[in-house]
């Protein structure tokens, strides 16, 4: 079966088993390895991508269901020169450790800040329920995110 989807604004065609999880299509077929498959069961969030703008766990998305959809991956959210605000905060606060969870963190949190420009600490944590980090213990990630709230920037 042939499936057409837009990945990072570019049309891509996949032919193969339509039940293949999107994360494998990205990693193995398109060789875009920024998206990570860590648990493959919806708990860790390392595989998070945006489908038509909304973060979803790509390990649980059969590619066949996405025919015609627009997918944005971590490779598509910023350029090497210009990180998005979430990435920049993570870099500025030096919060990255092994880095495996961060593509997913960035995808989830970038979306959160689009929908709520001044989330409080609890809201950030609640939004992070589906993104696990084994290295950092979270709080410094959250400190970084707190710094880009609009009221933080303006005040």
């Amino acid at each position: 079966m042939t499936i057409t989807l837009t990945v990072n604004r570019e049309e891509r065609i996949f032919s193969g088993d339509p039940r293949t999880p999107l994360v494998d299509v990205l990693r193995d077929h398109l060789r875009m390895t920024g998206t990570k498959a860590v648990c493959r069961e919806g708990f860790c969030g390392a595989c998070m991508v945006h489908v038509d703008g909304a973060p979803m766990a790509s390990c649980l998305l059969p590619v066949g269901s996405l025919d015609g959809a627009a997918v944005t991956t971590i490779e598509g959210v910023a350029t090497m020169e210009h990180l998005n605000a979430v990435q920049q905060a993570f870099e500025d606060h030096d919060v990255v450790q092994c880095g495996m969870c961060f593509p997913g963190m960035v995808m989830t949190m970038s979306r959160l800040f689009q929908t709520n420009t001044s989330p409080d600490r609890d809201e950030i944590k609640a939004a992070m329920t589906g993104n696990i980090c084994r290295c950092t213990g979270y709080e410094r990630i959250i400190d970084a995110l707190m710094s880009i709230r609009t009221n933080e920037v303006t005040s």
């Binding site: 490779e75 090497m80 990180l83 990435q87 870099e91 880095g99 593509p103």
Partner: peptide, 18 residues
């Protein structure tokens, strides 16, 4: 190494393929 990790560019052993 933070920037590449944040951009999904870092190649871990699991990412070596082709």
């Amino acid at each position: 190494d933070a920037r590449d990790k944040l951009l999904g560019r870092t190649k871990y052993t699991i990412d070596v393929g082709g």
